[in-house]
Each structure stands twice: as structure tokens, then as C-alpha cells.
Design a protein around this nucleic acid. Sequence first.
DNA 1: CTCTTCTAGAACGAAATGGTTATGAATGAC
DNA 2: GTCATTCATAACCATTTCGTTCTAGAAGAG
Lengths: 128, 128
Amino acid sequence: MTASTSDQLSAVFGALADPTRRAILQRLREGDANVAELAAPFDVSQPAISRHLKVLEQAGLITRSRRATARLSHLEAEPLRTATQWLVGYREYWQESHDRLDELLARLREPAAETNATEPQSRKESQS
Amino acid sequence: MTASTSDQLSAVFGALADPTRRAILQRLREGDANVAELAAPFDVSQPAISRHLKVLEQAGLITRSRRATARLSHLEAEPLRTATQWLVGYREYWQESHDRLDELLARLREPAAETNATEPQSRKESQS
DNA sequence: CTCTTCTAGAACGAAATGGTTATGAATGAC
DNA sequence: GTCATTCATAACCATTTCGTTCTAGAAGAG
């Protein structure tokens, strides 16, 4: 069960390594969305977004369902916890600056505002 | 300063997406090491390890110094904190299962044993 | 059934990634 | 200086990744 963890970690970290995919996750915090909605903020084609979604899905970061002809993406944060736990294993190396660790711990208990500042790239006028 | 954060996140997550690089970080928890020492557990050539180290260095996860002809790698955990903070921004989506979040928080305050079980790939008999 | 909507897949190209071997550069020992 | 040690770089190759356009398929509307 530890061997597969390595692969899942690689998949999750790999998925998170792309700004577009992180922005997609960010968008999904507002609620489920179909591909067109997810593609809207980006200057890339719809198939490109579909493949980003596939990467996210294979990393377990999203699940998908159907509503009519649309496919809704739903954020699944479980892999993020796995990744966080891995990172937390290195917390002893942060502790040179305790105040910032305390700050992190404080934010873990806050009601949670928006922490991420992920800016999508420039829009293109598509359906004009 | 938020725009560069996106690139740093991509670099860090990208660096962590490789099992060999994660294992190198794991090794560096025991202390600084030269390239030969870092390469020993893996069945890859020395230049391959050198390039992994370059990736880790560019992500800010290690720094390097010289001791005679050797180059020592030193773990720098600051980027791990940055990555963790990004992930923590999604904690509200974990909270469906509160007990496990509590467990994570508990581990954040523990004296820290080894949390990561990263197994290096098969050894090769080099200096027999 | 036909038509429209929404999305995935096929086919392709450019660039990045991860590995190799061979070689050169830096440093200390002699 | 010469030699040995340690590592980085160059050159190359195979694979993956990320984008494109074009097309096909699935699901509801008429």
C-alpha cells in the first residue's frame, strides 16, 4: 500500500505542476462546472482543457458526471490531503522560523478565505 | 510578487512529481551529501542524478556548496512550506472527514518521526 | 428520425523530460 | 607542474507532454 502511494504522489504533484490545472481546481471551488465553463478563462482550445481534466481525473483530483450532454467536473480534495501529509513530513525542516509555522497552523484553523492567487491567462473572444 | 509564486509552485510541484527526486530529498534529511552518495541507491548514471539535483536546485529545494572536489547538496525546505500553504488553502474541502484532518493537525505538532516511506529502486552493485 | 449541443478522441507537431555515454572543468594531492 | 577525484556539460535518443485542428460520439430537443 506504500508502493502505490508513490505513484499517486507523482500523479498528484504532476497534476499540480501546471498553472492551468491549478486554476481549474480553483474554479471548481465555486462549484461543479462543465468543460466549456472551465475552458472559458483560458486562451486554449477545448480539447486541451479536456486533456487537462483527464490528467486531474487520473490523479483523483476531480470526478466527473453527466448532465444531459454536458460533463460536470467535481473537485475531489482527498489527494490534496495525501500530498499535504507528505509535505508535513518535512515540517521539522521549516521550524527554523517558528513564527511562520505558527502562522501556517493558524491558517489551518481559520474559517478559510481565499488563499490562492492563481491568475488565468488572457481571454480570447470565442463565441462572438 | 504573486505572479512569480505561480512559477515557483509549478517548479516545486514539478520537482516533487518524480519519485527519484523525492527519494533524494528524503536522503538529505539525514544530512548533506555529495553526488556520489546521492546516486548510490539508484540504478541510474551519475549525470542523471546531477540533472535531478539541478531540477531540485532550480525549484529552491536544495542549495549546493563545495568541499574540495565534492559538491554538497543541502535540503532547503522553504519551498515545501510554500507548497503546503497552497494545499492548505483547500482544507475546507477535506473537512468532510474531520477526524482525518484532526489527525493531520496532530501530526503537525508531533515531534516528527519518519513520515515518508519512499523506497528507492533496485540497487546495482557498483563498488564491489 | 433529424438536428443541435457538448465533449472526447484521432492525428499531428513542437517542446520538454529523463535517460544514456563521452568528455571537460574544477579542486586538492603529490 | 602532473595526477586523481568529483562532478557538470555536451550530444544524442526515446518518450512524454502540451498544444493544435478535425472529426466522431453521446445525449437531449424538435
